[in-house]
Nucleic acid binder design. Structure first.
Lengths: 247, 247
DNA sequence: CGGGGGGTTGATCTCCTTCAATCAACGTGG
DNA sequence: CCACGTTGATTGAAGGAGATCAACCCCCCG
């Protein structure tokens, strides 16, 4: 795998932007010290494949900044995105040597990598890494199951609305904009990547985005910047308006 | 929730059929003793709903025998099965109070339940339950992601073939029949449940099963007993013929 | 005998895919 | 600076896979 010169950033864990959310979130200072000894940073450019399905993996990693995707591919070329990796998300599986999915950088990305053997040994000896990883994995399992409902039962329009909801919700939880019911956010995916995620073709994605625009559910500043005038309407379009609190 | 008289079976963990695969698999004797103190058995009949989405859950559990399903429902009634629970599989999430999915018994089923609070405390104090649960959750996450590929990208025929492959594979790993390439197994799901799992309608399921039969890929002894003359053919119909060893 | 659950099959419809043309934005080299 | 290719996106027309609506079968059980 060629990698366009991974810039090696030296950084102290205590300054790390994902310190409180990543796999190391529950670590105490001695555990953190041990992690620090086996960690190194790698950077990738947007579009680069970080890991190929079937590759040998000698590390696990956390996303520090940027976005990546997990994708599965069939022999005839059909692909399905099975995960979206945001900052603090974890890549790789302790106890496994081969990558199960393609990992592709959607934006420029920085990863905090840990050599696999020492990481596994740390997990066996001290509890907090494993505990945190269990929490994160359970969350991912919930997300995967929600996505199964989307893939199996939702219409194209509902799929688009659901995806926008998820991105919007994540964005809102960071930016905490004053206006609770309308918001604007950046869509970090191409039409093709959206199709890959939603189990659709890119043409259908384009059509449904246009339809939502025509119906006033969303507005497009440019093709990647989306304004939602009324979040409740988008939520009801998504089909799953559990509507519990903050969206 | 009414429960048709859960027969209370008293059983020693050392005799348990799932002792080596369930969440307790890695426990040492002292941990097992603690688990044994907070465990109790419950039985359910085929068709019974064990837990309703949104219900308060004061226990977690392992499936001892029988089969159950995890199902998500949209307000308008559309449903999607998001998990199949087989013996040794785990139900519930430590740290969560509300059930995220409907849990429905497909066959008569026996569950080994643990009161949630003590179970969580045991997880916090000793490592082996958490470690095993992490392994199992990672496996489930992989399965969920494989299912996302199926739901998003496979044709109806491939979906059916994939489901049969999974059931057949599981059956073969238990029964270890002599003939490596042909086998017969019982299909524990109704057409409706299959549709629910595969993101199809029951009519489409029925048609595709008939088509596979007409094409000689499978034979039906009765409507729930399936004979596969050549497993390789079924695998290629499923689309994902990684074909690594034992199917 | 009636009735209901599970299953199959047929006819029709429709939503999404497929194939294709077009466009805008952007960079690159002549 | 313009011609050209590329990449991402939109839109149209046609076709098809699966959904929907409906009839009917089989078998068990009360």
């Amino acid at each position: 795998m060629t990698m366009h010169d991974a810039s090696i950033i030296s950084q102290d864990c205590s300054d790390c932007p994902i310190r409180h959310r990543a796999v190391c979130a529950k670590c105490e200072s001695d555990e953190l010290t041990q992690l620090e000894e086996v960690k190194y940073y790698r950077s990738f450019q947007a579009g680069q494949t970080i890991v190929f399905q079937g590759d040998r993996m000698d590390f696990v990693a956390s996303v520090v900044s940027g976005i990546a995707t997990l994708t599965q591919t069939m022999e005839d070329g059909r692909t399905q995105m099975v995960g979206l990796l945001l900052p603090s998300d974890f890549v790789g599986r302790p106890g496994r040597n081969e990558a199960a999915y393609d990992v592709v950088a959607t934006t420029d990305i920085v990863m905090c990598c840990f050599r696999k053997r020492p990481f596994e040994q740390l997990m066996a000896k001290t509890p907090h890494v494993g505990q945190r990883l269990l929490e994160m994995t359970l969350d991912e399992l919930d997300a995967a199951r929600e996505w199964m409902l989307l893939l199996g039962r939702k219409t194209a329009r509902e799929k688009i609305a659901s995806l926008l909801t998820i991105i919007a919700r994540r964005d809102a939880s960071l930016n905490l904009s004053g206006d609770a019911n309308s918001l604007t956010f950046n869509l970090p995916l191409t039409r093709d990547a959206m199709a890959d995620y939603l189990g659709l073709t890119l043409e259908t994605v384009s059509r449904q985005v246009s339809a939502l625009k025509k119906d006033g559910v969303i507005e497009l500043k440019d093709k990647r910047t989306i304004h939602v005038p009324d979040m409740q309407i988008l939520l009801s379009e998504a089909g799953d308006d559990a509507d519990g609190g903050i969206f």
